[in-house]
Simulated scan of single mutants.
Amino acid sequence: MIGKEDKIYIAGHRGMVGSAIWRALENNGYKNLIGKTSKELDLRNQLAVQRFFDAEKPAIVIDAAARVGGILANSDYPYQFLMENLQIQNNLIDFSFKSGVNNFIFLGSSCIYPKMAPQPLKEEYLLTDSLESTNEWYAIAKITGVKACEAIRKQYGKNYISLMPTNLYGSYDNFDLKTSHVLPAMIRKFHDAKLNNNAPVILWGSGNPKREFLYVDDMAEAVVFALENKLSDSLYNVGTGVDISIKELAELIQIIVGHEGEINWDSSKPDGTPRKLMDVSKMTDAGWKSKITLEKGIRSTYEWFLEHKDSFKEVRVKSITKSDIS
């Protein structure tokens, strides 16, 4: 069992997921949390990571650090998405193991599963078919992390767990239109278009693909649950078990934001995977399930966006730019 005073290192603690995990741990009484910014610790640098573990000696490590992005970013920077994610996670996993860390949480993504896998996605579908080509570089890196944790668990009996969240969103999300995922990109686009006299919003694809979305505070609670409960396996999906079409998502966000213009779909652009719904029965059977509805989560996310919008560059254009569907 872990203790409230155990030193917990959260890699990526300034990001959307890492900051939510930090808040959740504090709210649950954990008092010895540590984090380093990328300027303080370059997780791609093997020697720097080794020195960090030698100095800090954390008892628990949560890997919420990664280079992330949508279709456009993955397509433009395949080498960086593959290599940098491998460097980050390999350094964290290896030095956690070598320094005696017994509890490690590795966070991945639903993109690790084959593009045409049966729905909903079960953990057992991993490596049964080919990946979605638009984000295979990121997916391959994450699959390697999952297998590394599984190998340590199998060979050495350490509690190394991989949690595969569905599409996450919430406070501290990325609202940059060139690198963001579909939900925050839509919030940004509808908001900017509303300010631009309710200009039409152009979105990629047909709107037909279906996606599942999990509010990041729910994800953080799943991490706390995984730390506090002995899970019997190494890989667990984390999601709501409910999906929605991209068209329905756009209409919901449009209502919440208050945009009154047209939505136009550019069908010449790729849709990505037709459907990605997670089978979350393993986590449900273990005793955890999500609590925050999609509408409530989007409203909270838009409220956060409005509070911090001055830090985002306003986009005042007649034709709204690209959207990514992860």
Rank of each mutant, 00 (worst) to 15 (best):
Asp266Gly: 05
Thr293Glu: 13
Ile298Met: 07
Asp279Trp: 01
Gly272Tyr: 06
Thr284Glu: 15
Met283Val: 01
Trp265Val: 12
Leu306Gln: 10
Trp304Leu: 04
Glu262Leu: 09
Trp288Asn: 00
Lys289Met: 13
Thr273Ala: 15
Glu303Gln: 10
Asp285Asn: 15
Arg275Leu: 09
Lys276His: 08
Asn264Ser: 11
Lys269Met: 15
Asp285Met: 13
Met278Arg: 00
Leu277Lys: 00
Gly261Gln: 02
Ala286Ile: 11
Glu307Phe: 08
Val280Thr: 15
Ile292Lys: 04
Phe305Met: 03
Phe305Ser: 02
Thr301Val: 03
Asn264His: 14
Asn264Thr: 12
Met283Ala: 01
Leu294Ser: 05
Asp266Met: 02
Leu294Met: 04
Glu260Tyr: 03
Thr301Lys: 05
Tyr302Lys: 07
Leu294Lys: 00
Ser300Tyr: 10
Ser268Asp: 15
Val280Asp: 09
Thr301Arg: 07
Asp271Trp: 09
Arg299Asp: 11
Asp279His: 03
Lys269Glu: 15
Tyr302Asn: 06
Pro270Phe: 10
Gly297Asp: 05
Val280Arg: 07
Asp271Pro: 06
Lys276Ala: 15
Glu303Asn: 12
Asp279Lys: 03
Ser267Glu: 15
Glu262Phe: 05
Glu307Gly: 01
Arg299Ala: 12
Phe305Tyr: 15
Thr284Asp: 14
Arg299Ile: 11
Glu307Leu: 11
Ala286Lys: 05
Trp304Arg: 00
Met283His: 01
Ala286Gly: 05
Gly297Trp: 07
Glu262Ala: 10
Lys291Ile: 08
Glu262Ser: 12
Thr301Ala: 04
Met283Cys: 04
Leu277His: 01
Leu277Trp: 01
Asn264Cys: 13
Ser267Gln: 13
Ile292Thr: 14
Asp279Val: 03
Asp271Gln: 02
Trp265Gly: 08
Pro270Ile: 05
Ser281Asn: 15
Asp279Arg: 05
Gly287Leu: 03
Thr293Ala: 06
Lys291Phe: 10
Ser300Trp: 13
Asp271Gly: 02
Ser300Glu: 15
Thr301Asp: 08
Trp288Ala: 05
Tyr302Glu: 03
Leu294Tyr: 04
Leu306Val: 03
Glu260Val: 01
Ser267Ala: 12
Glu303Ile: 00
Trp288Gln: 06
Ser267Leu: 12
Ile263Ser: 01
Asn264Asp: 13
Asn264Glu: 14
Phe305Arg: 01
Lys269Ala: 13
Thr293Val: 04
Asn264Gln: 14
Gly287Gln: 05
Gly261Ile: 10
Leu294Ala: 06
Ile292His: 06
Gly261Pro: 01
Thr273Lys: 13
Ser267Tyr: 09
Ile298Asp: 10
Asp266Gln: 04
Val280His: 08
Ser290Glu: 11
Glu262His: 07
Thr284Gly: 12
Glu295Asp: 10
Val280Pro: 06
Ile298Asn: 10
